[in-house]
């Protein structure tokens, strides 16, 4: 079968890693985060050497796509974010244009496998062209602020705040 890792341009990966770091810094509850392409490739991860990042990236894109499908089926327009609440924490998949961020919050050790994905929140950023990486309030399950990324590839470094982006 095919190799799993796809070489995104180094500057794209660096920008994505920077954006993801900002997201993690702004969300102290987040233990893991993966920024993925729409088709499930890891672009950036927190922590950087997260062993499960590639698997989480693939699963995130499936969840994202299924969310889109059911929202479409229900005639509700386009899907935005997906929240999965579990015994040990919360997983959030944040749709960001054609990419997504999956963030995981929570406490380790709540009936979780040692080798599996950590139990907390997982937020995934989908496509970054024109994407938004947002502050996610895990207590209220609401997005409390937003930062707009503009560009035609994963976080090309130009971050243009938009007047309507917050809330």
């Amino acid at each position: 079968m095919q190799p799993v890792s796809l070489p995104f341009p180094p500057q794209v990966v660096a920008a994505a890693q920077g954006s993801l770091q900002e997201f993690v810094d702004a969300n102290s509850e987040v233990q893991l985060a993966v920024l993925t392409s729409g088709d499930g490739f890891e672009v950036a991860a927190h922590p950087r050497d997260l062993p499960a990042a590639q698997r989480l990236a693939a699963m995130s894109s499936s969840l994202q796509a299924l969310s889109e499908a059911i929202v479409r089926e229900a005639g509700l327009g386009r899907a935005r974010n997906l929240i999965i609440e579990s015994d040990g924490g919360t997983i959030v998949v944040l749709g960001i244009a054609a990419t997504s961020v999956t963030a995981v919050t929570g406490r380790r050790g709540v009936g979780q496998r040692d080798t599996g994905p950590p139990p907390l929140g997982l937020t995934r950023l989908r496509r970054i062209p024109g994407a938004q990486l947002r502050r996610f309030d895990f207590a209220s399950k609401s997005i409390t602020s937003a930062t707009e990324h503009k560009g035609h590839s994963y976080g090309n470094g130009k971050r243009v705040p938009q007047g309507s982006a917050a809330r």
């Binding site: 796809l6 088709d39 499936s62 796509a65 299924l66 499908a69």
Partner: peptide
């Protein structure tokens, strides 16, 4: 049909 297609970023495969 219900489909879950997204943009393909792996043009090598």
């Amino acid at each position: 049909p219900i489909c879950t297609e997204v943009a393909n970023s792996d043009r090598v495969t």
